[in-house]
Design a protein around this nucleic acid. Structure first.
Length: 204
DNA sequence: AGCACGATTAACT
DNA sequence: GTTAATCGTGCTC
């Protein structure tokens, strides 16, 4: 029997739980009639159970929605894609309940389907460098602003996550999130980054 | 209206 | 190890 895509109840939970359970599941993209996919090997939770996570974009504007962040305040299972450093599109999945803002950033994948397409999209780079970072994997999978606000749980969507057995905890690790710059404590050090132990595609 | 900066990457020395 | 690239966003004046 074939796998099925994850549904809203999976995503409509605490971001930290979703971030951990996404490890080992398959992110799938339909592009130009072909499938591109990779195992999720690294994630980060934003907002989690705190009233305010100053590392999370949804905490800006005094925690009120803005055109950019409003998608995170809506129902779970939607894509939040934003432009980072004016160069890279980073891909998140909205989590939690409608009315609260939280999301999980997908930071690294292990290539599965569509490797020819990925190699093309990451021209000149070694296989490891196709998807071992949040900006690299969006390039490899052709994820840009057109993916923002898409519903991953809709049957016709061009991007979704396939269900898979939850990875055993002994194969997972967690630690502080990266690239947070001048985000103050305690958020700077909260261990809300998750990855698969010893996986080559975890970002450097 | 102007500005400082970022959930990064790649190309340098 | 250092630094340029590049632009939307939210904050300040």
């Amino acid at each position: 029997m074939s796998a099925t895509r994850l549904t809203p109840p999976f995503f409509a939970r605490n971001a930290r739980i979703v971030a951990q359970e996404l490890l080992g599941k398959q992110l799938v993209r339909r592009l130009d009639g072909h499938l591109i996919s990779g195992l999720i090997v690294e994630t980060e939770a934003y907002c989690d159970f705190w009233d305010v996570d100053l590392a999370c974009h949804a905490s800006r504007n005094k925690g009120r929605p803005t055109p950019r962040t409003e998608i995170m305040f809506g129902p779970a299972g939607f894509a939040y894609v934003y432009l980072n450093y004016g160069i890279h599109s980073l891909f998140n999945v909205v989590t939690g309940s409608n009315g609260t803002a939280s999301a999980v950033l997908i930071r690294a994948l292990e290539p599965q389907l569509g490797e020819i397409k990925m190699e093309k999209n990451r021209k000149g780079r070694s296989r490891i460098e196709w998807t071992n970072g949040p900006g690299k994997l969006t390039q490899a999978m052709g994820i840009d602003q057109s993916i923002n606000k898409q519903n991953l749980c809709h049957p016709d969507s061009v991007i979704w996550v396939e269900d898979a057995p939850t990875l055993s905890l002994t194969r997972c690790q967690s630690g502080p999130r990266v690239g947070l710059g001048k985000t103050p404590e305690p958020w700077f050090s909260m261990p809300w980054r998750f990855w698969i132990k010893n996986n080559q595609f975890v970002s450097k």
